[in-house]
């Protein structure tokens, strides 16, 4: 039992609950109709189009989340610009962060 700030978490209880619910779901499912037809009724309906073979249906990695990347086009363009792979810029970022830290730390004394 892991005590967090506001509550607690116990993996074993969760697993027991999960299994219990899974059994209940299975029981409810087994009440379902048993007279469905094998074969034609199981096929996916693609607006009347022929279903492609599994090899052709596999979505390649670049196409997954295309919409997400497209929606955040500006952000990704900016990120590509920053992640330019040039070692000089890596060090420049480091120096920049250190400079910001110095300003934050010493600005009070400058004002004083």
């Amino acid at each position: 039992m892991l005590k967090t700030y506001a509550g607690s978490w116990d993996a074993i209880t969760w697993i027991i609950a999960f299994i219990t619910i899974a059994i209940v779901v299975y029981i409810i499912r087994s009440f379902g109709r048993k007279d469905y037809r094998k074969g034609e009724a199981q096929k996916a309906f693609f607006s009347g189009e022929d279903v492609l073979s599994p090899e052709e249906m596999h979505v390649r990695a670049s196409n997954i989340y295309w919409g997400f990347v497209e929606a955040m086009k500006g952000y990704y363009a900016w990120m590509r610009k920053i992640h330019n792979g040039i070692i000089n810029d890596y060090i420049a970022w480091f120096v920049g962060v250190a400079a910001i830290m110095f300003i934050v730390f010493f600005i009070q004394e400058v004002i004083k």
């Binding site: 990120m79 590509r80 992640h83 792979g85 040039i86």
Partner: peptide, 9 residues
Amino acid sequence: DSHSRRLKE
């Protein structure tokens, strides 16, 4: 040249 590398993004 450090600008002509391939590892990026």
